[in-house]
Design a protein around this nucleic acid. Sequence first.
DNA 1: ATTTATGCAAATCGTTTGCAAACCT
DNA 2: AGGTTTGCAAACGATTTGCATAAAT
Lengths: 159, 159
Amino acid sequence: MRGMSAELHQIAAKRVGGDRQRYTTMRRQLVDILSDADHPITIPDILRVDPALAQSSVYRNLTVLEQAGVITRVVTNDEWVRFELAEDIGRHHHHHLICECCGTVRDVVVPEALEAALDQSLDRLASTNGFELRQHRLDLVGICADCRDGRSSALVDGG
Amino acid sequence: MRGMSAELHQIAAKRVGGDRQRYTTMRRQLVDILSDADHPITIPDILRVDPALAQSSVYRNLTVLEQAGVITRVVTNDEWVRFELAEDIGRHHHHHLICECCGTVRDVVVPEALEAALDQSLDRLASTNGFELRQHRLDLVGICADCRDGRSSALVDGG
DNA sequence: ATTTATGCAAATCGTTTGCAAACCT
DNA sequence: AGGTTTGCAAACGATTTGCATAAAT
């Protein structure tokens, strides 16, 4: 997926710029890393990809990118926050397979019919509760194939 | 909801005991607090209910209760973990309304038809991916009525 | 008696922040 | 030049842990 980056960075730059901030080398690199990862990754994962990165700057820049709407924060049950490209930049709308064992998060796309049913039901549910719905979050929590087969590469972030 | 506690504690005690641990006064009290709360609450919330509780013991006992299957850990985007009674003990299967503004989490029940569609689709999706599905997690993220009206009692945990 | 639970204070660890140097326009 | 961004080291804060005392079986 390293080809279509041009457009990606163009959009990212525009959004960051719109936030009155600069699309620096490091921010671009972070977007590249998230783009290559193709699934939500942790800060340690990112530092493993490029150990030269200053941890504090990674934190700061991920926050900047998040506020600019370029990336999204993904929360799971394990101890690290994860990040992925925003849905309207990276892949299509998707959900997550979260492994209780190794913590890995994979993307999945659910059938369109289900997504439609969800949208309809949740919209109604939200308005019934006076709730302004911004997004829905649907995760499948369980044990991934690798862990079940005992070959959980656990902490490693292959990709 | 303070009436049906007898049975509740009976089940809780059995599960904790099955874990070769004791259903102490404090653990019982935590179950009571979660039962009264009727929505997922944070550790600070719990300490506010009874400031005499030792924070470290609350952490430890919530872990014990979680491992015994009495309570469930709820993760949101804010900085505190939340806890609620396990679904097969407390309320029925439900999902969450998470407010991006004040962090409050409320329970909602989605239409049975949607739940059925979810179950079916997700089961299939899981097996397609060699994933052993344990639970699904569906959250509505947005702005709650209180925050929209500007009367967000934010950090307070009214009830 | 023996095992388990509690409270306190100290330690951990992911994350945030202060500040001086490096960068971009 | 003037405002941003970066890296380093120190600070933060939610959570965990060590250890001596108290409670439960």
